[in-house]
Amino acid sequence: MQQDTESSGRISRDEVAHVARLARLKIDEDELDTYTKQLSAVLDYAAQVAAIDTAGVVPTSHPIPLINVAREDTPSSPIDREEVLYMAPDTEAGMFKVPRIMEDSP
């Protein structure tokens, strides 16, 4: 396995906390230490990809190079609204209901 040239782990505790915030995950202090250690180990391993010379290599985002995939524009009946809303956590007037997204106006 390739050695990490940095003395500390590949990802810092602060970076893990930042990434968790970006991903909308609440991580407590104890978990943060565990995840930092585990993610550093995985990233150390994954960083082996850096050793390969890929100059001029086109990245593969997908195994099949499909282009311009479109369906016929044929009207059909959508999934029943009631059936979709039935499993939603909260609904009102035939719509999904979310907690408030802004402060009360003054």
Binding site: V42, V49, A50, P59
Partner: peptide, 23 residues
């Protein structure tokens, strides 16, 4: 999720995700 978010984040995208796609 955290690993993927990190691999896609600004500053690391090309070194991790981009390089993995070239590999």
């Amino acid at each position: 999720i955290m690993l993927g978010t990190y691999a896609l984040s600004a500053g690391y995208y090309d070194a991790y995700y981009g390089q993995a796609q070239r590999v």
